[in-house]
């Protein structure tokens, strides 16, 4: 498997703060990688570095073999990097369908017209929002808006989907639905990088987990190895979590 996304010694500074510090990480094609870490660890900044919102201060980002360290967000989107936001960002004055059609047109490369709308409707069916296709995006519930983000992401025809806390604010049933959706997306061959606080979600989805702490990558590896790693337990999971896990296994 070749690496789809390669970060080499990526650093992002904001003034004197190193929000992301010397991160080297490679994401192979088809992987579902979990990115965890305490609040303020630099997870969202790392996503912003990859998408060009806050380009790296040092280091290199390579995507599908090309250097994308300095590309602007819209260029990253057209190359096949889609992201969802922690705080959902629909176009409130447009219909749900128009929201997805915009993604299909501008990132997916379709021209203005019926085809983009047809394709948008397909994605809306996939995420279960076809019934509200013609409602105003502002009228959706939070869970629906998160699903709208998925549909937008898919319409961008992504090679890499960056999911930034898509489950925050959802109830247990809604989280289960989102999980199924992410699995279905990954099954289509889309590489997924997911930022998540719910360990249940991370453990059931991810083939590998990377852990950030104070902007540094402190561990990366198979889920089981990560949750037993003493540094991860100390920085993020906590001793109680470790004991509970040990109890469950022993």
């Amino acid at each position: 498997m070749s690496a789809l996304l390669e970060l080499s010694s990526v650093t992002r500074r904001f003034g004197g703060l190193r929000a992301v510090s010397d991160v080297t990480l490679s994401v192979p094609q088809g992987e579902v990688l979990g990115l965890i870490g305490p609040n303020g660890a630099g997870k969202t900044t790392l996503v912003n570095v990859i998408t060009g919102v806050h380009p790296a201060s040092a280091g290199k980002v390579r995507f599908a073999g090309e250097d994308i360290t300095r590309v602007r967000p819209y260029q990253a989107a057209r190359r096949g990097i889609a992201r969802t936001f922690q705080i959902v960002q629909p176009f409130p004055g447009m219909t749900v369908l128009e929201n997805v059609a915009a993604a299909a047109m501008f990132a997916g490369g379709l021209s203005y017209g019926q085809r983009a709308r047809d394709e948008a409707l397909q994605h809306l069916r996939f995420v279960g929002l076809a019934e509200v296709a013609n409602s105003n995006a502002a009228a959706l519930t939070l869970a629906m808006r998160k699903r709208l983000e998925f549909a937008k992401g898919l319409a961008m025809r992504p090679k890499l989907l960056l999911l930034d806390e898509v489950n925050a604010g959802l109830n247990a049933a809604e989280v289960d639905q989102a999980l199924e959706l992410i699995r279905a997306i990954a099954a289509r061959g889309v590489t997924v990088l997911i930022i998540e606080h719910l360990m249940k979600v991370v453990l059931s989805l991810c083939s590998r987990i990377a852990v950030l702490h104070h902007g540094e990558l402190i561990a990366a590896g198979a889920p089981q190895a990560i949750i037993e790693d003493p540094r991860v337990i100390q920085a993020y999971l906590g001793k109680r979590y470790a004991r509970a896990q040990a109890g469950a296994h022993g």
Partner: peptide, 26 residues
């Protein structure tokens, strides 16, 4: 108004950074 340009402008009017993220060359 009935073209990709007009649609892109509407996206910018609604939320410029989200439009950027969706591939609109703002």
């Amino acid at each position: 108004a009935n073209s990709k340009l007009g649609f892109g402008l509407r996206c910018i009017q609604q939320n410029e950074s989200a439009a950027d993220m969706l591939g609109v060359d703002t």
